[in-house]
Nucleic acid binder design. Structure first.
Lengths: 219, 219
DNA sequence: ATGTGTGAAGTGCTTCACAGCG
DNA sequence: CGCTGTGAAGCACTTCACACAT
């Protein structure tokens, strides 16, 4: 019952992503006044296998009550803790173009423990301004200093592909250890730095691939 | 040597995504004047295994030249064809908020065979306007008609989570078979409809998870 | 009776290693 | 000789199926 993590368990990235999904669903359930939920019920909600959900949760201890299921409030707190979401995290966005500006004001981004503290750009015309939501646009040169002073833990890259690797190196040198890249480029992060990519073009191309296959079968 | 697909080969989604990555890299190589490339060289570029690249490509025929590698221009054309990127695709975006507007003007989105034809919103204050790049904002009620008339094949969902499932159903009924969802919600698509999700919050939470683990090891 | 936790089986993706072609 | 194409081995994730707790 102690909050300690089971020591031997190595948690896969896929499991961690599913935990986020479970967490969101538990918040919905809690808001709806549901107090306990079975792995079965959750599985149906996501189109997953119930054993997978139990395995994911069992990595961290025995949260379930046999014969009953999981207590929604408890499980929510446990997952929040496991994912490290108890503390607020400061985020900087590099690139104050269309996408960067939109992300700075995106509601889902500026909530649930995340706070966007600044945008950075090297375009002097943009520096000094603010996003509609009020996030300030600062000079790229100030990035290392501001990142350290604000203790920003996460950087979002919304810069052109050609500049992305350089910016990644810059923010890494500034001590940032977690980076979300929106630039359509394959980047290399130094060890100890977690880099995730959201490549919109690849997503679209992948959709086209499925469309093309469907059209072919249809013929 | 004929362009025909090998019949038995079932292509996995992961392979298809990597093909998009290869394609992008081949475009770079071609622009740099490189005419042939080995799987080794490409593997180093992405931090992948060379056998994987060869396997991915071998699904569709024997494109390589033994002892030499792959001819960049040929391989690029083949992958373009395999991914179904020979034809232009029309895209609609539902939700003309910050994110939808930014996506409509996003350079990487409006290029390489993709064309964003319209934004849709049910907010009368937005309808009739345009994005900065000139994409018109139309009334949601006009969606089915416009989608069919324009033969839009892809829809991007940039609406609030609470509305997402309804909008997904609406665009599905309008005949759209490929959907990219940005709303933070688990949606269910009917059979025959491909649904991909870009869940920014889950990405951020995943980064925090890695940060939290790193901090723990550090202690 | 009900639903968790988990070893074992199943599935699919990745990597190895080498035959074979240019 | 160099590099592709590919069967076989390795590995990771998923699903099954059931003992066991309540």
């Amino acid at each position: 019952m102690a909050g300690a993590r089971r020591p031997g368990a190595e948690i896969s990235d896929l499991t961690a992503k599913r935990l986020s999904v479970y967490l969101r669903s538990l918040e919905d359930l809690q808001a709806a006044g549901v107090t306990t939920v079975s792995s079965q019920a959750m599985a149906e909600k996501f189109g997953l296998n119930s054993a997978q959900i139990r395995k994911d949760l069992a990595c961290f201890g025995e949260f379930g009550v046999r014969g009953v299921g999981y207590v929604v409030a408890d499980l929510k707190d446990q997952i929040t803790r496991i994912l490290g979401l108890t503390r607020d995290r400061k985020v900087i966005i590099v690139g104050a173009g269309n996408l960067g500006m939109a992300l700075a004001d995106y509601a889902g981004f500026n909530a649930g423990g995340f706070r966007i503290v600044a945008l950075f750009d090297n375009d002097r015309g943009k520096v000094g301004g603010r996003s509609r939501g009020g996030v300030p646009v600062l000079d790229m040169e100030a990035l290392p200093q501001i990142a350290r002073r604000e203790k920003a833990g996460i950087a979002v890259l919304a810069v052109p592909a050609a500049a992305a690797q350089k910016v990644l190196d810059l923010v890494s040198r500034a001590g940032i250890k977690a980076i979300l890249n929106f630039a359509p480029a394959q980047l290399k992060a130094r060890p100890g730095v977690t880099l995730k990519a959201v490549d919109l073009k690849i997503q679209l191309e992948n959709l086209v691939f499925h469309l093309a296959r469907a059209e072919e079968v249809h013929r």
